[in-house]
Design a protein around this nucleic acid. Sequence first.
DNA 1: TATTTTATTGCAACATTGTTGCATTTATTG
DNA 2: CAATAAATGCAACAATGTTGCAATAAAATA
Lengths: 135, 135
Amino acid sequence: MRNLLKDKKLSETPFRKEVLEVFGNYSNAISMSVIEKGLKDYNRITLYRTIKIFLEKGLIHEIALSGEPSNYALCDSTCSSELHQHQHVHFKCTLCETVTCVEVAEFPSLHLPNYQIEQLEIQASGICKVCLKKE
Amino acid sequence: MRNLLKDKKLSETPFRKEVLEVFGNYSNAISMSVIEKGLKDYNRITLYRTIKIFLEKGLIHEIALSGEPSNYALCDSTCSSELHQHQHVHFKCTLCETVTCVEVAEFPSLHLPNYQIEQLEIQASGICKVCLKKE
DNA sequence: TATTTTATTGCAACATTGTTGCATTTATTG
DNA sequence: CAATAAATGCAACAATGTTGCAATAAAATA
């Protein structure tokens, strides 16, 4: 497994490794409170700063949601602080409420007259594959 | 002009009308702090509750943004609390920083195998038409 | 339109989250 | 392993979200 921290020139500390482990335990994006529950013990401020620097370095990305706290997910290795290179859709399931980064073969393109588009982010909602199977 | 408040079965109060006026003064989406600056005088809690009920009734919609406070914009008349029927893209300009709801002729469609998509939200970023002209 | 009913507002108070400076501790570098 | 650089934890504070409740204003009704 790649060393995410060293790759991004961040010091390897036990706490940061533990936060990354929590991300690794989920295949979906997770909220701050889920991260907190996944940690043995944590300092609120340190966690806040850890998430902040992970975002800045492009280790994780934030998925902003209307009416509820943001979720976070690990980035591709090609992401940097400046540019996120995700070719995936953020999918929020209306049943189980989880947010997932779904890889998509052909990412939709969009043309807006008079606008110069540099980045596209797509958030879909509906029923995820796990919940579809359960029905 | 349509009476937005009565349409949504909300009492018409001077304050609510003033908040709607502020929205009317902008062609783009606005943040809480912009709303505050546009009001003569306001009570923090009342404003908070006003925005909340406007959202619930589908009078306005929230545009959640990563790393910064949400923006808000007036909805189409067809929107309700349950379902937002926007056929527009949320465009964030990297130069002037404004967020605009851009109507688009053909809204992109997306198919994700094993997922049932109910709603799509697209957030684009780049350079808006105003800033393109200035260059 | 006066009165009743219902909804909104503003205050006080508190909860949660975001943020900084600084001393201490820990990781990295040579 | 010492020197340097970075991360952590504490205290303290700022900003934002939220509630109960009394006062006030709007809507419904007679």
